[in-house]
Nucleic acid binder design. Sequence first.
DNA 1: ATAATAGTAAACCTATTGGCTGACTATATG
DNA 2: CATATAGTCAGCCAATAGGTTTACTATTAT
Lengths: 111, 111
Amino acid sequence: MRHDVTDLNQTFAALSDTTRRAIVARLAEGEAPLAEVAAPFQMSLTAVSKHVRVLSDAGLVSVTKRGRTRYCRIEALPMRDAINWLNDYQRFWDTQLEALGTLLQDENEDD
Amino acid sequence: MRHDVTDLNQTFAALSDTTRRAIVARLAEGEAPLAEVAAPFQMSLTAVSKHVRVLSDAGLVSVTKRGRTRYCRIEALPMRDAINWLNDYQRFWDTQLEALGTLLQDENEDD
DNA sequence: ATAATAGTAAACCTATTGGCTGACTATATG
DNA sequence: CATATAGTCAGCCAATAGGTTTACTATTAT
C-alpha cells in the first residue's frame, strides 16, 4: 500500500465538499445502500453516485455489490494519512491559541 | 470567530494541492517573503501568488506588507478545525488497522 | 530622475467539478 | 414474461481551478 502526495490531494479534495463529508458522516453510522445514502439530499441519485465515486476513488469509501444493491462502507485509513500530515502543524495552533489566551488574560488583568 | 461547513470546504480544498501543502510546509519553518516562497517552484510568481491567495482566503496563511515585500505566515487554526472533523472517524482506522493486524497475525500463525 | 525589485491585476486558455437528463443494464418480484 | 427497483453511463452545461502572459503599481536603490 503506497501513499504519495497525489493520495493526499485526492483525500483532501474528496473532503472539501459538504455533501461528501455528510456522506462520510452517514456511513460512520454503518454500511448503507447507495439509495439510502442519497435519500437525505435534494440532488439526483446520479449526482450522489458521482460523489460516492469520488470518495471511493480517494479510498475513503468502498462499494460492494450484493444483488442489485451497492452497499457503501467507510474506509478511514486515508483520513489517518490526512491527520498525520496535519499533525505536523499542531504546534502552530497550540502557540497561537496560547498567545490568544495570554492576550485575553492581559485584557482582564484589571478585574 | 465563526466556523461553518464552508470554512471546512475551503480548508480541505486549500490543502488538496501539492504546491499549496509545500507552501504551508515552507512557512512552518518561518515567515517568508512571497518571492522566497515561490523560489522552489517552476511556475510563475503569479501562479504562486494565486496559491497563496487561496491559502489566505482559507485562513491558513496571513500576508503582511512591509515596504514592497509581502511576508507570508502560517495560520494553523483552520487546520485544527479540519483535524477536529477528522478525529470523529479515528475509531474506524483504529478498528480497521486492528482487523488488518489480526489478519496478518493469523497468516503467520504457522511459524 | 531613472531604473530595478516585489508583487498585483486582467485577460486568456484548458481541464475539472458538480449538477442535470435520458437511455441503458442488471436484478428482483408479481 | 412483464414490470419495478437499483444503479450506471453518456452527453450536456455553467462555474471553478490552475496555469500562462502582458501590463501595471508601489517601493527601494543608484
